[in-house]
Nucleic acid binder design. Structure first.
Lengths: 336, 336
DNA sequence: CACGCCTTGGCAATCGATTACACGGATGGT
DNA sequence: ACCATCCGTGTAATCGATTGCCAAGGCGTG
């Protein structure tokens, strides 16, 4: 098994371990002949180095940790892909963890990442309050960037979407389509984006004179969207529109509508949030808010790289602008 | 920053580092009073240990690496979640990498994981031939389990689905529905599952007397499914059924059908493979093959744990049985 | 009372790579 | 011809935790 060490290489090449290290890492120049000898010896032996030992000595791992509430949610997988891509170009690896929307598990993941000496952390925190302690602790240990959601009172960078603007786009679009009453389906989680979306919904519906019929809170899942819509259907006359805090919920809503014989958009308009790939494939295709995921990911990595540098900058918050993608769920029925 | 070491704790508690290590890890008993003192000192200082140093000394990281072709594909995310869950119960962490369906990137990931001294690797290899070298090398370094797909000639465990049985289920269902001609849309990748699915399609259509009209190869994506279906539509009379090698392709096919005014299932039947969550939400809902992902994940972790133990067992191959989920894309139209 | 076992804690080696420091030889300038 | 550099290389300390070995003290037994 992989037990060939730098010492073995040094012996075979007839040089010291220091020279081998320098030859292979290029930290300092070695003579061409020695370089050749060492490289060949390493190849012959199948030397692959011991990243652990290297990390211990250099006290950096060239690895950043990422913690997301769910890797099954396509929004987060897109974010993860973006971050991984951006990191790769900086020569770093990504260590991915899922907190399963559980603050305790999240705290455990953070401890684990810190113990493993990752160079920095990108996290989308689960809960506005119950995530705070672990997050504040981790922020004291190493550079940390929050993405999408943020926990107030933690002294770290954040990059995400402008939720207020997003709901302004949605509500204006609905109002312009003649909607006069609406329900909102979201999650019980109290975190920044969830709360800002409710707040934005409330504010902008008020501004446009749309009556708020219901605000149903559950979780970010297809199942919850389905259940919430079933409740709305059972409760009596439907609002003109159902606004969902993410696309998974909206997909569940559409499914429940189909099952209950409610026509979308004829009987009710439905909107989502995130523009996951499946939002365009539903029946009907979903009007939703597109998040600039790649930009968010890139910016997060940029901020993290900056924080890994020498000087400490004050925490940055950047809210990127979303855009509205109008599809059949709020327009004329294309599938008829 | 996190620079409190075991030495600091030892000093504050007035004992040796050896005692601190033993007190905190429980490797050997310490007296109750010392345990108390040490625990308090560690808490006071916020000591969190240095996993890197520990890993170097113990030469294990309690971490396993996982490499998948894509984390955007819901099938793999489900697999990843299953593996993570199973590992967590064994007290291990998951280090997740994406190979982006690129054998070179895959090789790089494998090298990186080996250098980081993960205890074992779970991988769904990209390519039946171009993945072999890196996989064989890694298998020589540490325990490795292949999932879903496998590369022949690598001496490792494998767990996946019975692809032949899966296509038997699909083709029998289609034949029983009166289909007499069919096309197959898959990926150009030459790996076990891709090839076994084509082989199964060919074999079972022949057995049931279904004419094979086309076999289109591209990649596992919605975009390719869409494009392939456009080609079929443009090429002339459609076959009775279109069988897809995964659900993403099938979703793309459905989208292309909708765009081209081809009615599913009235004009053509469509089937997928994997039963991702979005397969039930498409228009129409997709008939597909359900993979026992959780069982695959659990079995993979079980095999890995076994391989981490003392004795070497011969490589195991286990093909788990899939099941057919029949929905509207091959049945009577429910959405009308 | 004497002897040996068992428990508990410390000393120091160890894991494998990196790097500060030192040294010898070659080079170039005056 | 002599001295100052500079380049390439080796020696050994270092990163932080774990653990083999040993010693001291407590206890029970003959």
């Amino acid at each position: 098994m992989g037990r060939v060490t730098i010492r073995d290489v040094a012996e075979r090449a007839g040089v010291s371990t220091a020279t081998v290290s320098r030859a292979l890492s290029g930290a300092r120049p070695v003579s061409p002949s020695v370089l050749e000898t060492v490289t060949r010896a390493a190849d012959d032996l199948g030397y692959s180095g011991n990243g652990i030992a290297s990390a211990l000595r250099r006290s950096r791992t060239d690895t950043v940790g990422m913690v997301v509430p769910s890797i099954a949610n396509p929004f987060f997988t897109a974010l993860v892909e973006g971050v991984e891509h951006a990191l790769q170009q900086a020569g770093r690896q990504l260590f991915l963890c899922s907190s399963r929307s559980d603050p305790d598990l999240e705290a455990q993941r953070l401890r684990s990442l810190v113990a493993r000496q990752v160079d920095g952390i990108v996290i989308s925190p689960v809960h506005g309050i119950r995530s705070r302690e672990a997050l504040a602790w981790a922020t004291g240990q190493l550079p940390l960037v929050q993405v999408d959601r943020y926990v107030a009172g933690v002294d770290s960078d954040w990059v995400g979407v402008d939720d207020d603007l997003a709901l302004r786009l949605v509500v204006d679009h609905l109002a312009d389509s003649g909607v006069t009453s609406a329900a909102f389906i979201s999650s019980t989680l109290t975190n920044s984006s969830t709360e800002l979306r409710v707040a934005g919904f409330t504010e902008h519906t008020a501004r446009r004179g749309i009556a708020v019929r219901d605000v149903l809170l559950g979780e970010y899942s297809i199942a919850w969207g389905r259940e919430a819509m079933q409740r709305l259907v059972a409760a009596g006359p439907l609002p003109d529109a159902v606004v969902c805090a993410d696309d998974l919920i909206a997909l569940g809503v559409l499914q429940a509508c189909a099952a209950a014989g409610v026509a979308v958009p004829a009987d009710v308009l439905v909107t989502g949030f995130d523009d996951i790939p499946y939002a365009a494939l539903s029946d009907p295709p979903l009007t939703t808010v597109r998040q600039p995921q790649d930009d968010i990911a890139e910016e997060a990595v940029r901020l993290l790289s900056a924080a890994l540098g020498p000087h400490r900058a004050p925490p940055a918050r950047s809210a990127l602008a979303p855009s509205l993608v109008v599809r059949a769920s709020t327009g004329v029925s294309a599938s008829g």
